[in-house]
């Protein structure tokens, strides 16, 4: 102890104390672990995308892939395309949307504008929650039990669309409900003050205000249901031919094509499966991009 150090020492101990080593270590460890989980989650995503692209991208570069079906080709012949499956996927997705969207939007309107805290509204909210957790295979079995065994309809793409409706409604209700909730009350009150009836206020003021978000939600929901496999497996037969008729006979779709061609254990089958996988991912990406594009183009101009 020299006098010099004594002089340099502050009169009072500093208010801030060093964090001790064990706390510092724990903090650092937690940071590393937390960041590590994020990296760990991205690994499968990257791995999966690279796999699919490496295995299937070469096949979708061919123009025939997008324009021809697999009709007339045996399981040993390369060539042809998945046009028939693309048509099926889009058709089933669109029919589903046409049925599901009006119902879902009306349900959301009910929840936000009319129901509020009534008992029915609670029941509806609960049901939507449960419906969003219903496995797709159960939805498919329900439509099978309803349409095919009970009503005697043949298996068809329309039945698939009905099953998809069950899966789509909760998604669209959720997004629409959230969006309607954030429409400012002032807009409604202004409309009421002008003597506009409530229904017209909703149709002309509330929904248009939320429209861009609703459309985005719908596109995302369509993208999601188009990748569903269980309903097509149960409710429609596979065909290599192009079929535009949702009520008649078998219709291919990309997931169904993949599950069917997967059983062809040779290079041709592999090409078709992974090519279809790339195609499905591309279509889903396009729909997702479309969704954000629409929301950007149609969003309300804010000063």
């Amino acid at each position: 102890m020299s006098t010099a150090t004594d002089l340099n020492r502050p009169a009072a101990p500093p208010a801030f104390q060093e964090i001790n080593a064990s706390r510092r270590f724990k903090n650092r460890l937690a940071t590393i672990l937390v960041a590590g989980t994020f990296v760990l989650a991205l690994a499968p995503l990257v791995w999966l995308l690279i796999t699919v692209i490496a295995k299937g991208f070469q096949y979708v570069l061919n123009a025939d892939w997008w324009q021809k079906s697999l009709a007339g080709l045996t399981s040993r012949q390369f060539g042809g395309g998945v046009y028939h499956a693309i048509v099926g996927t889009l058709l089933q997705g669109l029919i589903c949307a046409v049925i599901a969207v009006p119902i879902a939007v009306m349900v959301a309107v009910y929840l936000v504008e009319y129901g509020k805290r009534s008992r029915l509204a609670k029941a509806v909210t609960f049901t939507v929650d449960i419906l969003s957790g219903v496995p797709s295979i159960v939805a498919a079995l329900f439509i099978y039990a309803l349409c095919i065994t009970t009503l005697g309809m043949p298996r068809s793409a329309f039945a698939v669309s009905l099953a998809l409706v069950l899966l789509m409604i909760p998604v669209v209700v959720r997004t629409t409900e959230e969006l309607l909730k954030i429409v400012p009350d002032e807009l409604r009150e202004a409309a009421y003050a002008l003597g506009v009836p409530k229904w017209k206020t909703i149709v002309k003021i509330v929904i248009p205000t939320a429209m861009s978000g609703i459309i985005t939600g719908i596109t995302l929901a369509i993208a999601r249901v188009m990748g569903e496999t269980a309903p097509v497996l149960v409710l429609v037969g596979y065909t290599t031919f192009i079929n535009y008729d949702p009520f008649g006979g078998s219709m291919a779709s990309l997931p169904l094509l993949m599950t069917s061609e997967r059983l062809t254990t040779n290079e041709v089958g592999e090409a078709r499966v992974w090519g279809a996988a790339v195609t499905l991912i591309l279509i889903i990406t396009v729909f997702n991009l479309l969704g954000s594009l629409i929301s950007r183009l149609t969003s309300l101009k804010t000063k």
Binding site: I103, A104, M106, V107, V109, Y110, L111, E113, Y114, G115, L120, A121, A123, V124, T127, V128, I130, L131, V134, V138, A139, L141, F142, A145, L146, T150, L166, I169, V173, K198, W199, I202, V203
Partner: peptide
């Protein structure tokens, strides 16, 4: 009419869950 439509959609969704169970 509009209110009836929205309430109807709500009831439809509730009925749907019940129908799934019943039909199965």
């Amino acid at each position: 009419i509009f209110k009836a439509l929205t309430v109807g959609s709500g009831v439809f969704v509730v009925a749907m869950i019940a129908l799934i169970g019943i039909f199965l």
